[in-house]
Design a binder for these strands. Structure first.
Lengths: 147, 147
DNA sequence: TCCTGTTTGATAGTTATTATCCACTGATAA
DNA sequence: TTATCAGTGGATAATAACTATCAAACAGGA
């Protein structure tokens, strides 16, 4: 989550052209805490940028991901979801509606190295699953797949 | 991972008809440790069952999942992958080739409960990521998406 | 063995994502 | 500021992974 100047510098450093679309996608994503899908970002952005194409959002998210500015979250609903926070953190995934909440807990950041023959481990993430506050209250409503 | 008699009993208990296809899919999956996709299972099974349909494999995996006999693994490659082991365990995911290895480590089974407002947590899983033995040796070969 | 509600197989449809192609633009040099 | 041009964006076709549909076949109880 970087401000506009930091973003500009990062693009320049990596020699990746900074276009209006890329800045717009990054800033929209940075401003949200709901792990939107590419489609969801597109829906939000097209209000301000009516000429924006969905394909561009996909390509931009991939570019940002390769630059290490955006993280991919694997949700139980197959659709990939994105997060502007790349710092180490963990997730709570609602098994009823698919909602993903960020968890920050240093105790989870340092886990015992498992013994996996030959595997060179570079990091880890913990997925907690259960029911989010909303679904815990209304257990019957199965809405899987929020956007 | 159950033997044929346990499977038969489980289906009877849950009042779910046990078909040849369901048994075949479950036994094929049980016999593999490579987290195959629906497509991959279909490819293996069609040799012994040429009339088997891919749609049936998808439907069967969903049925087994609902019965709690099969777990879904969210891999970085969007395609869902399955596992016959439902007991608590964790994964090491290779960021180069997509390989997923099972990790069993009781120290990872008991983690501190995170504070996520209102979230009713029922379980968790840890994903380690890095390079598998094969890819660690050949760092240049980027084969992402094994079947 | 017969009956009946489910399941299967074949296939069309859907959803998420990627590839293609050409006009256009951002970044550098003049 | 403008010219240049590799790289990007927009529109859309294509692909991949599922899912729905429906007639025919089957599983499990009578």
């Amino acid at each position: 989550m970087k401000n506009r100047e930091e973003v500009r510098t990062l693009f320049k450093t990596k020699k990746v052209p900074l276009t209006h679309q890329r800045l717009a996608v990054y800033e929209e994503l940075s401003g949200r805490r709901d792990h939107p899908s590419a489609e969801a970002l597109y829906e939000s952005l097209r209000k301000a940028y009516p000429s924006l194409s969905l394909a561009t959002v996909y390509k931009t998210l991939q570019t940002l991901h390769e630059m290490g500015m955006v993280a991919r979250v694997d949700s139980p609903a197959a659709q990939a979801r994105y997060d502007a926070i790349v710092e180490t953190h963990h997730h709570a995934v609602c098994t009823a509606c698919g909602r993903i909440e960020d968890l920050f807990d240093p105790r989870l950041d340092a886990l015992p190295e498992p013994k996996a023959a030959g595997f060179v481990i570079s990091g880890h993430s913990v997925h907690f699953h259960g029911l989010c506050a909303k679904c815990a209250k209304a257990p019957s409503t199965r809405t899987i797949k929020e956007k």
